[in-house]
Structures are given as structure tokens and as C-alpha cells.
Computed example of a mutant assay.
Amino acid sequence: MISLSKNRWILVATGHFVLLFFLGQANHYLSSVGVQLFLIGMLLSFSALELSYSQGVLSIAPICLIIDSKTPFPFGYNLIACLTLFTIAHILRSRVRREVTASALATSILLNIGAFAAYTFGAIRYLGIESLHFVPLSMNLLASTLVVTLFNRIFFDTQTGVLSIFGINLAEEQREAR
């Protein structure tokens, strides 16, 4: 039997998959107006701020591989970009008060912008500069940032609530670690 306390990455990755499902649905309906949402920053932020490094990598890797299978970039590009951003966020998390909502929101927005930039530079490298247009690109970044701003707290609270159902109290563990 799998101990979910030690393998909490399974619960977090499941929550990430659920968010990706709803994101795919939203992008399907928003495609008629030319907007695509990009919410990788919330996934990276939760895993970097709330989990240990190994648990965070395990929760992010399957998500990145799923996204890799759907992008026109070489397979593994998304995995390398996201794990790089995750590692940077995990290293810098000691400078952020994780229990403060504004810190989580700022981290999510910064990681989302960083991932968006990585995807943009990847598109320039692998698809050519002529494939990008400034107005749709900036509109997608603005819409994604607004959605991250609106739903970051809900996402963090939902993930934390699901973990607490299985007896994992992240806030208590962080206090004990200090």
C-alpha cells in the first residue's frame, strides 16, 4: 500500500492534472476569441513553496511530460524549462514567507511570466520569429496573469485542503521545520 504522507507528490500531481483539465477546457472555449491561458506558474509555485525538493520534482515532472507531448518543441524542452524555474524558486523560497498569501501570489506570477518567456524564446528558436505576433502574445500574457491573480488563492487552498483530508498538514510541518 502506498503511504500518501510520504508520497504526497501523487496528490499534488493529481491536483495539477485536474487544473490542466480545466485549463484545457477554458482554452478550448477561449480559442474562438484568440486567447490562450498559461498557468504553469501556479503549479510550479505550489510545488516549490509547499513541498520538499524531491517531492516537488516528482509532482512537476509528469505534468511537464504531458505538456511536452502537446507542444511543437523538442520533447523535454518543457521539462527542462519548468524544472529550472522550479529549482530557482525552491532555492529562493527561504527568502519568502510562505504562509503569507501575497508571497505565494507574487511567486506564482513571477514563475508564470518566467515560464511564458521560456516558451516565447523556445518558439523563436524552434518556430522562427515570424511565427510570433506582439498583440496576441501580450494579450495572452495579460489574460494569464489576471487568471493567476484571481485563482491562485483558490488553487493553493484547494491543494492544501486535499492534502489535509489525507492527514498532511503543510503549515504545521513548516513550523516544526523551523
Rank of each mutant, 00 (worst) to 15 (best):
S5E: 14
K6A: 10
R8F: 11
I10N: 03
I10V: 13
I10W: 07
I10T: 03
V12L: 04
T14M: 06
F17R: 00
V18E: 02
V18H: 08
V18A: 10
L19N: 06
F21Q: 06
F22Q: 02
F22H: 01
A26F: 13
H28E: 10
Y29S: 05
S31H: 12
S31W: 08
Q36S: 13
F38N: 04
L39T: 05
I40K: 03
G41L: 08
G41I: 12
G41V: 13
L51H: 03
Y53G: 02
S59G: 05
S59Q: 08
I60S: 02
P62Y: 12
I63Q: 03
I63H: 04
I63M: 05
I63A: 08
I63W: 09
C64M: 14
L65M: 15
I67L: 12
I67P: 00
S69G: 15
S69H: 09
K70F: 15
T71Q: 11
P72R: 06
F73T: 04
G76M: 08
N78Q: 14
T84F: 15
T84Q: 02
F86R: 00
T87W: 06
I88V: 14
I88D: 01
R95A: 14
R95G: 05
R97Q: 15
R98V: 15
R98C: 10
V100D: 14
V100F: 13
V100Y: 13
S103D: 07
L105G: 05
L105C: 08
A106W: 12
T107G: 01
I109S: 03
L110Y: 09
L110D: 07
N112I: 05
N112W: 07
I113H: 02
G114V: 08
A115P: 03
Y119K: 01
T120N: 00
F121L: 15
G122K: 00
A123L: 04
R125K: 15
R125M: 13
Y126T: 03
Y126G: 01
L127I: 00
I129Q: 12
I129K: 10
E130G: 06
H133C: 07
F134H: 00
V135M: 11
N140A: 11
L141I: 08
A143E: 08
S144Q: 04
S144H: 04
T145R: 00
T145K: 00
T145L: 07
V148A: 01
T149G: 11
L150I: 09
F151L: 08
F156L: 03
T158N: 07
Q159I: 15
T160M: 07
L163C: 10
I168K: 02
E172W: 14
E173I: 02
R175A: 10
A177M: 15
R178A: 13
